[in-house]
Measured scan of single mutants.
Amino acid sequence: MQRVNMIMAESPGLITICLLGYLLSAECTVFLDHENANKILNRPKRYNSGKLEEFVQGNLERECMEEKCSFEEAREVFENTERTTEFWKQYVDGDQCESNPCLNGGSCKDDINSYECWCPFGFEGKNCELDVTCNIKNGRCEQFCKNSADNKVVCSCTEGYRLAENQKSCEPAVPFPCGRVSVSQTSKLTRAETVFPDVDYVNSTEAETILDNITQSTQSFNDFTRVVGGEDAKPGQFPWQVVLNGKVDAFCGGSIVNEKWIVTAAHCVETGVKITVVAGEHNIEETEHTEQKRNVIRIIPHHNYNAAINKYNHDIALLELDEPLVLNSYVTPICIADKEYTNIFLKFGSGYVSGWGRVFHKGRSALVLQYLRVPLVDRATCLRSTKFTIYNNMFCAGFHEGGRDSCQGDSGGPHVTEVEGTSFLTGIISWGEECAMKGKYGIYTKVSRYVNWIKEKTKLT
């Protein structure tokens, strides 16, 4: 034993070699072989497995989906700052455009905790909710729209109204504003409101030439003092309507412009014939205590009207009353817009006519005020429907199939267009061939041609 100890002390290297040989010859039971080890760690190889990531292109799944990435790591994937920024906006807080917040056709661009709407022409605001041009839906104005110097929408209202708090709607500024039905039992019968379409306001006024200088022999019209197929109006439903009495009662109609003036057809009036105007009328054979009678003290036909040349060209006249009318729910003026808007309103496509005229061709006159909704007829169809001249200051309205029309005794009465609950004068009943005849239409004086003249002559002093 002493000898062994001496050998170990003198030859430590020998001992180490012996131990190493023993270990190498022993069977290893701690580690699995290569094949079995792979069965336990069965993990798919990654895209760049075996390579240094710093030297390969980034992978979106590896960089940002398996674990949260930084902007720089995302930049490695896209290799483009702009594309990385677009991805980053949604990656950080989701897609803010998912709810489609942009209105009126706006395009949404996502941002971090926010979004941006790219608005089409005519709109602005956070969600493109603000109209900035009158060309689109009248700028959301209830009545009139004008573009300011910086191309912003400025709404306005006709006389007797003021802008509401929203700067879009119009509200009454006087007790009985024009064009409004205020009798409670008839307010439910107000005709369907007309909503502004998209309009090209630059070209809204037709490029028409008034044929002022045409000389033409007097034409022989049949029954051209021209509501057939209409309905009984309720008291106060058309408070701007008046009836004219002269040699015979209810020979023509008219509309209240203001307390002192009536507008009617020029062919209705004769110099030297006494005319009485009755406002607030409903049943011409009954006294309903809503009527107001006034005498006409002055007749002003349009300066281009000449019955000797043509009885229905420039067929418009103004009547001055001896005493002002007292405005109330049964006696209310009709609204008159400017030339541009009167023309736009007419193009809405349908209007209402009213009167006490004959209820059928050569038949009896109506006792109760009649009204009828009539569609506008395109000019080409209008011209083809008659052998008589249709001037540019006239328009056609009615039904091709016949059966409904204005008729004798309705002449001078109103053709009105309702705009968001307020009625505007767009025409004056003038003439036609018979009444409600198939293929024939009622012919009306186009008020847009005469609004400046009306307003100039009827100013209240």
Rank of each mutant, 00 (worst) to 15 (best):
N5W: 08
M6E: 05
P12S: 14
L14Y: 06
Y22I: 14
F31S: 15
F31E: 15
L32Y: 13
A37K: 09
A37S: 14
N38K: 12
L41F: 11
L41M: 09
N42D: 15
R46E: 15
S49F: 08
S49G: 13
G50M: 10
L52H: 15
E54M: 09
F55S: 15
E67R: 11
K68H: 09
S70D: 07
E72Q: 10
R75W: 04
E76L: 08
N80C: 04
T85W: 06
D93T: 15
Q96H: 14
N100I: 04
P101Q: 03
G106F: 00
G106I: 00
S107G: 04
D111Q: 07
N113V: 07
N113L: 07
E116C: 02
C117T: 00
C117I: 00
G122S: 04
E124A: 04
G125V: 00
N127Q: 09
C128M: 00
D131H: 09
T133Q: 14
C134Y: 03
N138T: 05
E142T: 08
Q143T: 02
F144E: 00
C145V: 02
N147W: 09
S156N: 05
C157A: 00
G160S: 07
R162I: 11
R162H: 12
E165R: 12
Q167L: 13
K168Y: 11
K168P: 02
S169M: 08
C170P: 01
C170V: 00
P172S: 09
A173T: 15
V174D: 07
C178A: 00
G179S: 02
G179C: 01
R180M: 06
R180Q: 07
S184I: 15
S187R: 13
S187C: 06
L189M: 06
R191H: 09
R191L: 14
V195D: 14
V195I: 11
F196C: 06
V199I: 11
S204E: 13
N213H: 07
N213G: 10
T215K: 08
Q216N: 07
T218K: 09
Q219S: 04
F221H: 13
D223R: 10
D223K: 07
F224V: 13
F224H: 10
F224A: 15
R226N: 14
V227E: 14
V227W: 12
E231G: 10
E231S: 06
D232I: 13
A250F: 08
C252H: 02
G254I: 00
I256C: 00
I256A: 02
N258T: 05
K260I: 04
W261S: 01
I262E: 00
A265D: 01
A266P: 01
A266G: 05
A266Y: 02
C268Y: 02
V269K: 02
E270H: 06
E270N: 13
T271P: 12
V277L: 03
V277R: 00
V277N: 01
V278S: 07
G280T: 01
E281Y: 07
H282W: 14
I284D: 06
E288H: 06
K293I: 06
K293H: 09
R294G: 02
V296E: 01
I297M: 08
I299W: 06
I300S: 03
P301C: 07
H302P: 02
H303D: 11
A307C: 05
K311Y: 05
D315C: 01
A317P: 01
L318T: 01
D322C: 02
P324F: 03
V326M: 13
L327N: 01
V331D: 01
V331F: 01
P333C: 02
I334E: 00
A337R: 01
D338H: 05
D338E: 07
E340D: 15
Y341A: 09
T342H: 03
N343I: 03
L346R: 04
K347P: 01
K347Y: 07
S350V: 11
G351A: 10
V353R: 09
G357W: 07
G357H: 12
S365G: 06
V368N: 07
L369S: 12
Q370K: 09
L372H: 14
V377W: 03
V377H: 02
D378I: 03
D378E: 11
A380C: 06
C382Q: 02
T386H: 10
T386N: 12
T386W: 07
I390G: 09
N393V: 02
F395Y: 03
G398W: 03
G403A: 09
G403N: 09
G403V: 14
D405H: 12
G413A: 13
P414S: 07
E418A: 10
V419Q: 05
E420V: 09
E420W: 09
T426N: 01
S430H: 04
W431G: 10
C435M: 03
C435D: 04
G439V: 03
K440D: 15
K440S: 10
K440A: 08
I443W: 10
Y444D: 00
T445D: 01
T445S: 04
S448C: 03
S448V: 03
I454T: 01
E456M: 09
L460D: 12
T461V: 11
T461H: 15
